[in-house]
Design a binder for these strands. Structure first.
Lengths: 217, 217, 217, 217
DNA sequence: AATGAATGAGCCTTCATTCAT
DNA sequence: GATGAATGAAGGCTCATTCAT
């Protein structure tokens, strides 16, 4: 009674549910998250989830979908980095994109947490995301790295070089909780994403500029 | 299998339960893991968990404890790296220790998974582990990195340099599932841990040898 | 029987549950009473208890509440006994009210049993009942007894006189099981409540009319 | 280890178990009482109960037995009241015995609680106790009351007169919790058992001395 | 004689899901 | 279109009891 949910069109309700589900799934994980908590936050009834979505699972899937949409944009933006830029600039752009993507403080925290969870146990939607967004990104990054080297290197070595770059970036997202504890007095990574991107770029450029192929076996 | 419970001392049973719990917790996470599945694998009754441990939670805690014991050994081993070794050798030793720790193929897979989960949402036991094992390791690594540089750098910069080294190592553990999908044809990281450690060492040494302080502002 | 759940509004279901719970709690006590037995009698599923009430405990509390509601009416009725009636008549009215309250054969047996249990280990609801219903009753009874005496008596003595009256009444409720065994051939107290009230009134009037203060010390 | 239970003969252990069980059964009731709590208090292992007694039930029965033994003594003591004493003195003695029995402060509290519980739901042992101890007591009390009256009264009336006497006594035991709440500032009944016995005797004597048979119909 | 180890039975509770309205 | 009412399934936990030692 007096449950005035103004402009509660079906779409609006679905959006509220996804938003709320994102928070709850991020906080508790899929299993521990309860539909009741989600619908409470979304100001809906428990039956609403099974009405608008078929399942708890289906709701989760759509949350994941929703999370990846932003990622798609981010990574596609890398496709727009002009190919005629100097390789150093291109590396800088790629690193900056990745760092700002995983640390973007304008994004609600739960998106990053969902993404981290998904990367550990990829669902179908995430596998698609890997293929459609991450793989092209990695391919292009490989090109950039190869351009920065004096001579061609075999694929395996190129992959590892790229991994070294990406690993530095992802670390701040994956090990967030560890870093908070190890360095409680340092600024939160999300607040200095620019500085970190700059640091990683310089570290990687330094390494690549001095790179020598390993002596075999 | 192994339904022989003849020499079932209390300790033996507890060990079996922890072992089984490790697998199940790693596979499903704390919530989804059921005591029944654990006790089935350990060939015990569900009540056994509440007898030997008081709780499902207490069982999980002891699993975490058990996991960290190995980690303690690994990281303490780094304390034994002779301090009079050349800095390059020391870096190599530290990287090798970390990589082999997170990828150690002789360890059951679930230990790594539990550790990853714990690092995302550290329990009390993990917080202790961070303080007692990881922090000393990081401190020493900072010294090594500083030694490799021509001149002293401020703490924040030193921290980020260390992060760049560690990030490369952890990446192979954290993004295991992603890497499997991106490079289905490449050897599993765990099988070439030595090569990876070598690569990361060389990449980091190259970067540090060319390192220049960032221009301020 | 009565498996017709057609007009099953929420209130109706709650009522059925409370009714059934009353019987079962009375018969077995809180601990031994099982939700299953309650819901079986109420023709509901075990989960219904946690839906309509949150707890087994909450259900019990509401049963107690329900029991006391009748008591409230009874004792409040004593407030309506005209104060200008002769004291003998007022005593008779008070005794009759109390006896009929504790023995009321129109009430299901379980109400009395619950009340007895509660009086032995009062819950919060029962403490409220004591304050709101019993204490005013006792106060008024004290006045009546004082009026029946030739001269004022100290509070402690007055209290004991009132206790002597009340004790006679309650005995038939508290020692029901004992009386059944001692006097198997006598009519059940509940069936001769009027006679008992009359007897107790006459016994008490006789005592009070001859009452002399005790010799001190 | 170092579990020095000096002089722990079998009998001694049984006694400790019964003592502990009495406390726990009194506090929690049969169902809620756990063997673990009992054996903890008795400094024994949980298996000891099933070893020394066969059952939880059997343990409870022996506790009841133990409780009634004291009652037997008390009530049998009434048989020793000289029959040639004046009826008033005999009444006084009977009331004093009953009051001191139910309020005896030298007895652990739990005996009274167990007894109260048992009177509400008599077990086999209690039924025996009723027959062997209470019935003779009531018989004798009936004789005393008859002696105090000017003329013979029918059995039913005699019974009710006796009930009026007994009811006053038992009230202080049964309604202990109620009295504590109604009169928080008055002395505990157990501490003034003598005064109460005196009061009840005088009240009853006053009533009986003025007693007139009810007008029939 | 006494107990540590282990368990089966049963209970309360939670939760996703269904369905009549 | 949306929900209050209700439930089946399953899980964690407690506890009296058993048994080998």
């Amino acid at each position: 009674m007096a449950n005035v949910k103004n402009n509660s069109s079906a779409k609006e309700t679905k959006r509220r549910l996804i938003e709320a589900a994102g928070e709850v799934f991020a906080q508790h994980g899929f299993e521990r998250a309860t539909i009741k908590e989600i619908t409470d936050r979304a100001d809906a009834s428990v039956a609403a989830v099974n009405y608008h979505f078929s399942d708890k699972q289906e709701l989760y899937d759509q949350v994941v979908q929703y999370v990846h949409e932003r990622g798609d944009e981010t990574f596609k933006a890398c496709g727009d980095v002009p190919t005629d830029l100097p390789p150093k600039e291109r590396l800088k752009a790629f690193v900056a994109q990745l760092v700002s993507h995983v640390l973007d403080p304008s994004q609600p925290t739960w998106r990053c947490q969902i993404k981290t969870r998904e990367m550990q146990h990829p669902s179908a939607a995430t596998e698609r995301f890997i293929e459609q967004s991450i793989r092209p990104y990695v391919r292009q990054l490989e090109e950039v790295v190869q351009d920065l080297l004096e001579q061609p290197v075999p694929q395996l070595e190129l992959t590892r070089l790229v991994n070294s770059v990406i690993g530095q970036c992802i670390y701040y997202a994956h090990s967030r909780e560890l870093l908070v504890r190890l360095y409680p007095d340092q600024p939160s990574p999300a607040d200095v994403a620019d500085e970190l991107a700059d640091h990683i770029t310089r570290f990687s450029l330094a390494a690549l500029s001095c790179w020598r192929a390993p002596a075999k076996g």
